[in-house]
Amino acid sequence: MTPALLSLGTALPPHVLEQTDAQDLYQAQPGTDRLNARLLRTVFGASGVARRHTVLSELVDHDARKDSPYITGDGRFRAPLTGARNRTYMEEAPGLFAAAARDALARCPAVDPTSITDVVTVSCTGFFAPGPDYHLVRDLGLNPATRRSHIGFMGCHGGLIGLRQAAAIATADPDAVVLLVAVELCTLHLRPARDADAIRGAALFADGAAAALIGSRVPDGCAPLLQLDRFRTLVIPDGEQAMAWTIGDSGFEMILGAAVPQVLEDNIHAALEALLEGPEGAVDRASITDWALHPGGRGILDKLEHTLDLAPEALRESRDVLATRGNMSSVTVLHVLRQVIDEAPPGEDRTVCALAFGPGLTVESALFTIPARPAAPAAHAHSATAVPTP
């Protein structure tokens, strides 16, 4: 019995950071010389990001900077220690976890929250215990016997890892109903950017959340969004130095090397071959109708579009999410999937190839089927839930 995606919800913090404002903020930092300013303009301009969301109101509201531990009143970055940044995560993350989960439940009323048997949470931008898995059981009124697990500190491919884990649970227990929720607060770890790696992170990363309901049995009154057909993992040789995510004294530190697009170009065909071949049977690549790629940056999308010989329209959803929401780490590919599902033409089964990339370098891949469905009214088009300011 193939597990199904029964619902997919999203949530975003209420504060919107325009990319031009973010670039101005970084260029105004003390010690920015002409070379650094030129690098900032180049990287921000080529990022593919137009705007993104953040839990930090002080990044967009000058009046909120008065007592901010992150930024001074005149716009200079402070250097809060990792503990202070993690306290903000503890304050802000639970609300986003709950908002995304409630959006997923609202989209599938046939699933009673008390029927959820398993909770899987994903995050790499903060830690606390009892963690978000515990808070979801409490905040949503789930059965206290609900099984819980957390996928922590995996990186941008964590959303697909979470889907893989949820699908494995539903395959092993056909009566299971799995709630998967991913939340990332990447902007908590922004800092003055001097080197190219830091500038790339400053230009890309954002905050957001997504949640999914997965089960092998489809309840009456629920139309499955996807069949979760197969998953694959590939660790790329010699890619360990290209991307990394470590804990520093003043926040988490991202290494996002300029070589990432080239490393992916050199290895993406091997990852795709592993996905299309296997014990489930071979799949003709020509049968893939839709692509849901994690938009790690415009350079990555450009390189993969060329390497995989894709039409420019093939990655439109990935580019749209990057432009309007930025790189939300593990959350991003779930937002891309939501848009692919919403915009799929009715009346035919469609095959989706999903790809996400994380430290290692590691490629997570999956094949999904969008079941044929009748046309939906335009008013049902997707928009992410915004979490109100506390």
Rank of each mutant, 00 (worst) to 15 (best):
D220G: 03
A311H: 14
A210S: 02
Q262I: 06
H382L: 13
E58G: 02
A100V: 02
V177G: 00
A244M: 03
P312L: 05
I116W: 00
D238E: 15
P69M: 09
D207Y: 06
I214Y: 03
A46N: 10
L40S: 12
P345L: 12
A381C: 03
R217A: 05
G126E: 08
S115F: 00
V340T: 12
D266W: 04
T369H: 10
P346T: 01
R350W: 12
R298S: 14
T20R: 14
G95A: 11
G48R: 05
E91V: 12
F368I: 08
A4R: 14
D195F: 05
S287V: 06
V122K: 08
L190D: 02
E273F: 02
G83N: 15
P388K: 00
S7H: 01
L6P: 00
P261M: 11
A100C: 03
D133M: 10
R51G: 02
D195V: 09
A354D: 03
C156L: 12
L304E: 11
P237N: 03
R230N: 06
P80A: 11
T362I: 13
I247A: 14
L59R: 04
G251I: 06
D139Q: 13
P359M: 13
S123A: 15
R78G: 01
G326L: 02
A170E: 04
D302R: 10
G131M: 12
T289H: 09
G131E: 12
G48F: 02
D197L: 00
P237F: 06
G299R: 10
G215W: 03
Q227K: 07
A274S: 14
G208I: 06
L213Y: 03
G131C: 11
H157Q: 13
E91W: 03
T10S: 15
G155W: 05
T324I: 11
R87C: 10
P295S: 07
A101M: 10
T10Y: 03
S7P: 02
L39K: 13
A170L: 06
P109H: 01
C124M: 07
H135P: 00
A167V: 11
H306F: 10
A50S: 15
V260S: 08
M243A: 07
I214F: 03
T369C: 10
E348D: 08
V352C: 07
I151S: 03
G239T: 04
D238Y: 01
N36A: 14
V363L: 01
H306E: 15
L304W: 07
V333H: 02
L136F: 08
A50Q: 14
A323P: 00
L105N: 09
C186F: 05
T20A: 14
